[in-house]
Simulated assay, not measured.
Amino acid sequence: MRIFLNTEKCQGHLRCMDLAPDLFDCDDLGYGVVRTTGPVPTTLEQAARHCAANCPERAISLR
């Protein structure tokens, strides 16, 4: 599984960073960024799904 963040949809709510700080961070402007460049570790897959489900802008997708 990989995480993709649509930066055009992100509004900077940062729920993703609150829910999974190992997977998400924020940039200098306060918008979310993905911390992992490769596959999500299996121990964090549930957290990634939780973040995608809780993004109010639906900016996070998992593939």
Results as ranks from 00 to 15, higher is better:
55 C>P: 02
47 A>D: 11
12 G>M: 07
62 L>G: 01
39 P>D: 14
60 I>T: 03
53 A>M: 12
13 H>P: 04
21 P>F: 03
28 D>N: 14
35 R>I: 08
40 V>N: 01
22 D>S: 13
56 P>F: 04
8 E>T: 11
50 H>M: 14
40 V>C: 03
8 E>P: 00
61 S>P: 00
20 A>H: 01
21 P>K: 10
45 E>H: 10
23 L>M: 05
19 L>P: 00
43 T>P: 00
12 G>F: 07
42 T>A: 15
51 C>T: 05
55 C>I: 04
63 R>Q: 10
14 L>I: 06
24 F>W: 05
32 G>S: 15
40 V>D: 00
56 P>M: 05
44 L>F: 02
16 C>D: 02
43 T>K: 15
33 V>K: 15
51 C>D: 02
30 G>R: 11
32 G>A: 15
36 T>M: 09
7 T>N: 08
27 D>Q: 10
15 R>P: 00
26 C>Q: 14
27 D>R: 12
45 E>W: 09
28 D>H: 11
18 D>K: 15
20 A>D: 01
52 A>K: 05
58 R>D: 11
58 R>W: 05
35 R>H: 02
23 L>F: 00
37 T>A: 11
47 A>K: 15
47 A>L: 13
44 L>Q: 10
37 T>G: 14
63 R>F: 09
18 D>F: 10
24 F>E: 04
47 A>C: 05
15 R>Y: 14
28 D>W: 11
30 G>D: 05
9 K>L: 14
31 Y>Q: 06
37 T>V: 11
8 E>G: 01
42 T>Q: 14
57 E>V: 04
15 R>K: 13
60 I>G: 00
24 F>C: 08
47 A>R: 13
12 G>V: 06
33 V>H: 04
55 C>A: 06
51 C>G: 05
7 T>A: 11
31 Y>T: 05
55 C>R: 03
2 R>K: 15
7 T>F: 04
16 C>T: 05
2 R>T: 12
20 A>F: 02
58 R>H: 12
8 E>M: 09
28 D>G: 12
54 N>M: 09
63 R>M: 08
17 M>H: 09
32 G>V: 06
15 R>W: 12
2 R>M: 09
47 A>S: 13
26 C>H: 12
21 P>H: 06
41 P>W: 08
62 L>M: 04
6 N>P: 01
